[in-house]
């Protein structure tokens, strides 16, 4: 938007431009956020600025599982009560949150930081796959759970990992596929329905 031509104070224009870079924030939202912050007390603004800085300074990747953490190894890797024989492989750090929310999984994680996307030129070398194989060499791990997304790229990555890990004599499992809660049979796709039928359970 032609912020240069409009006589707006430079610091304000700068903040608007910064907000504009954030995902999901358009020019209008950026202006609104900026003018809101203008009215916030000095402490309020300072707290926000410091929170952003602290997040950048203190947070890094866990050197074991590559999750985002404020300590290395991260809280999950350090927790000895967790099942050290299972590793759940996910695409992004954000994927750990819903899995943890279920409170059903007590093992460890491994974050790939992406997924194999041949048409975009993203191959296994750009992901944390070598690091995963390295973790498996200890002999402690007995099961790897592949929790990549149930779409084409996620499946490709899962099949590739399975091909790499199976020869090591480690059990490789894939998250089951079925109908989502609150879903509708009418709109279910063939692949989901096929799997749901194949892996049906006694009610």
């Amino acid at each position: 938007m032609g912020a240069d031509s409009i006589p707006i104070a430079e610091p304000i224009a700068r903040l608007i431009a910064e907000f504009n870079k954030l995902p999901g924030i358009g020019p209008k939202t950026a202006q609104r956020l900026t003018y809101y912050l203008l009215r916030v007390s000095n402490e309020g603004a300072k707290t926000l600025a410091e929170a952003i800085l602290a997040m950048k300074e203190k947070v890094s990747l866990c050197s074991i599982c590559f999750n985002i953490a404020d300590s290395d190894p991260c809280l999950i890797c350090r927790n000895e009560e967790r099942d050290q024989t299972k590793i759940c492989v996910v695409e992004e750090p954000l994927d750990i949150i819903p899995l943890e929310r279920t409170k059903k999984y007590k093992g460890l994680y491994h974050v790939l930081h992406g997924v194999i996307t041949p048409t975009e030129g993203v191959g296994p070398d750009k992901l944390k796959i070598k690091e995963l194989l390295h973790r498996l060499q200890g002999g402690l791990v007995t099961e790897v759970i592949l929790a990549t997304n149930p779409n084409l790229e996620g499946e490709t990555t899962a099949m590739y990992l399975q091909q790499l890990i199976s020869p090591l004599g480690i059990k490789v499992t894939r998250l089951a596929r079925g109908l989502p809660f609150g879903g509708d049979l009418e709109y279910a796709d063939d692949i989901t329905l096929t799997r749901a039928l194949e892996e049906r359970r006694e009610a």
Partner: peptide
Amino acid sequence: QTINSFLPLRNDLWRTTWGLYACE
């Protein structure tokens, strides 16, 4: 509405790769 989801294509790493190449 799916007409054909080419299951054998998706269940195999190689076939998926070949299919994606054709798409690209």
